[in-house]
Design a protein around this nucleic acid. Structure first.
Lengths: 337, 337
DNA sequence: ATGAAAGCGCTAACAG
DNA sequence: CTGTTAGCGCTTTCAT
């Protein structure tokens, strides 16, 4: 049931409509110099007229590439990942590849989707892996040129493109410490993810680097993609007997959730906690108070990642070890007065 | 260059490793009842051990379906479309299909991507068409079961799933009129898009239904996906000699741009324009003033759309005319006091 | 400059 | 229960 209507047109049909051989059609369409200009034109015209569309599966059986690059993401609604998909799509498009976006947020779904990409013989894969991919997933990926993005798992490719997670949170936290904050709460992802562990480490490092006691560091760890967790953590902090003077988040989703939670309570002038949010979104510009965003060059990161993979695919070079680390920048939003 | 490493394992290799025929392997893997349990087990075990992954292109040449559904979107960073991709992905996943997301925001890119989906023999396509698809695009889609989503173009499938665009803006505008506003500005997409034209018509209809003169209706029309346009329109309105008392937007992107533009100016108590924004986002909850959101059940819409298409694919039924219209709901956000 | 034929990996019809 | 064979649409020798 691949395609219906009058059915797909084959090269053979084009050939018959002209009384030539299939091989002639194939050559004409491939701009083979051995075909006479007259024949080539006739073939192209007939193909167009009949609505001929090349059959990729058949071409692949002859050793052709699928020119498809798979992108495995945990969540497309996350602006972070949407930006990546967008940048990679542009990147692939320019190089004549097609990006196939797969959304899978569990190791099982991940395995299913990787299998589908493998069975479709995707030329390459860019993957933001789940924290603990199945053995089968790793086995399949071992046979497909692939790159890890953002998250990193030991079992997969040694090629990785990501951001300096530790530095992101170290810088954000240091920013707060420099402004005099001593009781700082961190709401972030648990250590299951490589990124979660690194970010937490960065938060702690800022304290030790400043010679501060970690007693002032309050940590709320949970699922980084769950807004409910962020909202509850923020609510708990605000309602506490001795609330922190500042809050810093360690995941895009959590930042939004925390803002939402704070916005839900009445504005208590002068008592609002200082905020540092992971990620940078247009909507931060209308936050009611001051907010420092940890902005990352994800677009450039994705471009670099896609370009790198495509270059290996084109040259046929092996996927050697590679690590590209992008660093973040703090952006300050303050309300117009 | 389909896949490297030790190269992909074929059914023949599995067969040879066991000294059986290829067809036996094929049957065992397909759970054919005619194969003895012992052989079947041996085959499955060998396949697993060797890392065999079925070759979709080869299966397709035998008439098998690609079980791939293409989704053509103009912009994945738009939360609207991201939600659709997410919902459809879930939908497809549950039915054993794979969603292939393609991002194309021009008629040319659209044609390229549709061609790629066609050549890959996608089983079906869900498309948010560009305003004027190329003739070639239409010709190719005529041979592939497809459904239009949100936007509607006459040249394509008679099957369409969308929202009642006119009613959305009529209701939003009527809401403002009911609250006493008489000078209302509309910032929306130009009439090139089916949705743009309908939304503008809804805006105007609210005026005539209320027996009001259209002189109070200010219209700024432009590219609906361009935040710059939204920002400039908002800035112009606010700076005008006689600014409108209310602003209503006609596209998700424009709503954000307008909020951002207003947030950039100092808060002038009591003089802020009333706002009705197209779309509904979590970030609206921290808008500094009052805001009414036009919330649409896009998730349900996408689910319905995907379910409908998959049902036709499974049964082999033709894609008959169909129109499913979802209606919106107004959601009010007001700052906590 | 073009045609004929082989074969990619798989499934299904036909033979044992 | 299992093996043999044909053929899906295409590219690529090898022959004209």
């Amino acid at each position: 049931m691949a395609a219906r209507g009058p059915g797909m047109v084959t090269a053979r049909q084009v050939a018959e409509s002209l009384g030539v051989a299939v091989s002639t059609v194939g050559r004409a369409l491939a701009d083979d110099p051995r075909i006479s200009p007259r024949t080539r034109l006739a073939v192209r015209e007939a193909a167009e007229r009949l609505g001929y569309v090349e059959n990729l599966p058949a071409q692949m059986m002859r050793g052709g590439s699928s020119r498809m690059i798979g992108l495995m993401l945990p969540d497309i609604r996350n602006s972070f990942y949407a930006t990546i998909a967008d940048a990679l799509s542009t990147c692939c498009d320019a190089a004549g590849y097609q990006l196939v976006v797969s959304i899978a947020d569990s190791a099982e779904a991940e395995a299913r989707h990787v299998r589908q990409l493998a069975s479709a013989r995707a030329a390459g894969i860019v993957i933001v892996p789940t924290p603990a991919p199945q053995a089968e997933t790793c086995a399949m990926l071992a046979r497909i040129p692939h790159v890890q993005l953002l998250r990193r798992v030991r079992e997969l490719s040694p090629a990785w493109f990501g951001i300096d997670d530790m530095e992101c949170l170290r810088a954000g936290t240091a920013h707060l410490i420099a402004r005099g904050h001593r009781r700082i709460a961190y709401i972030g992802g648990s250590g299951d993810y490589s990124t979660g562990a690194d970010r937490l480490a960065g938060f702690r490092r800022a304290f030790t680097e400043a010679g501060l006691d970690l007693a002032g560091a309050i940590e709320h760890l949970g699922p980084p993609a769950d807004p409910r967790f962020g909202a509850e953590a923020a609510a708990a902090l605000l309602a506490a007997a001795d609330p922190p003077s500042a809050i810093i988040t360690g995941a895009v989703q959590l930042t939004g959730a925390v803002l939402q939670a704070i916005a839900g309570r009445p504005l208590s002038e002068g008592r609002e906690p200082a905020l540092v949010g992971f990620g940078d979104e247009p909507s931060f510009s209308w936050w009611r108070g001051e907010l420092t965003a940890i902005a990352m060059p994800i677009q450039e990161l994705a471009q670099a990642c896609g370009g790198w993979l495509i270059a290996r695919l084109e040259t046929g070079a092996a996927i050697e070890a590679h690590a590209s680390i992008a660093s973040a920048q703090l952006v300050e939003y303050r309300r117009a007065s």
